[in-house]
């Protein structure tokens, strides 16, 4: 590892860990609540927050080089491409009619 590489303090690790535990508790809690159409969005929001904490702090991306940050972000950008272009099909199936269909 290169010199000057930032290592997160134990205190910070504990705080992130506690945050993850709280968010896990929240996940369990909302699983028992009926939020209607918000069920999936809220669950996804909590999951994304947890994943972000792990990537940014536990995986050390926050203190890493711009190249590493670019690599980390581009993976998610590509996932968004898959979702966005996929949803571009699923959400628009009724937009234009097809003769005979």
């Amino acid at each position: 590892m290169s010199s000057g590489h930032h290592v997160p303090t134990i205190g910070m690790c504990v705080r992130v860990w506690l945050a993850l535990l709280v968010l896990t508790g929240f996940t369990i809690f909302i699983a028992s609540q009926d939020l209607g159409v918000l069920n999936t969005p809220v669950a996804l929001l909590v999951a994304i927050t947890k994943a972000t904490l792990v990537i940014v702090f536990f995986m050390g991306v926050k203190w890493n080089t711009p190249l590493t940050k670019t690599v980390a972000v581009s993976g998610f950008v590509w996932l968004l491409i898959l979702f966005f272009m996929g949803m571009n099909d699923y959400l628009t199936r009724g937009w234009l009619g097809v003769a005979g269909r």
Partner: peptide, 22 residues
């Protein structure tokens, strides 16, 4: 090259709008 995959699916149930974009 990552944004064109739907052109393999013009004759599936894919929406016509998505087909236009692809």
């Amino acid at each position: 090259g990552f944004l064109v995959w739907g052109h393999h699916m013009f004759v599936t149930g894919q929406s016509i709008y998505a087909g236009l974009v692809f």
